[in-house]
Design a protein around this nucleic acid. Structure first.
Length: 114
DNA sequence: AGTTTGACTGGAG
DNA sequence: CCTCCAGCCAAAC
């Protein structure tokens, strides 16, 4: 018995992407969250990669605060030079190694969403 | 229809 | 802290 859902249908993929965009839009200023967290909130915990794909490819994602999404280590997206400056402009602090200080800025959706 | 890619993740070295 | 690896899964080739 699989402990994760079957492959997404086209409709599920569309719903997932809509949820991802909706969730990203709710990240408070000065906070960050992870791809895996968004995937989990959208109901597909193993689809962290698709969250990244959605933010990179989906038109309309540009006007969302997608810069408030980093990977689980707090690292900014590879190949996106504006990522770190955008966060710093909101007051997000980085550690010496160049990662976001997750202990200070990680968004706790449970306190805000549900 | 099979292979490669990637804005991921957690663990190992 | 860093890089590498296996597992992951939709999308792009």
């Amino acid at each position: 018995m699989r402990d994760y859902p079957d492959k997404m249908t086209v409709e599920q993929a569309r719903a997932f992407q809509a949820d991802v965009l909706n969730i990203v839009g709710q990240i408070p200023r000065g906070c960050v969250t992870t791809y895996g967290m968004i995937a989990t909130l959208a109901g597909w915990p193993s689809h962290a990669r698709m969250v990244g794909h959605t933010l990179r490819c989906t038109p309309g994602a540009e006007r969302l605060p997608c810069h408030r999404v980093v990977n689980s280590a707090g690292r900014t997206a590879p190949g996106w030079m504006q990522h770190r400056p955008l966060l710093e402009k909101e007051g997000v602090t980085f550690k010496a190694n160049g990662n976001v200080d997750m202990s200070r800025h990680l968004w706790e959706p449970a306190l805000d969403l549900i």
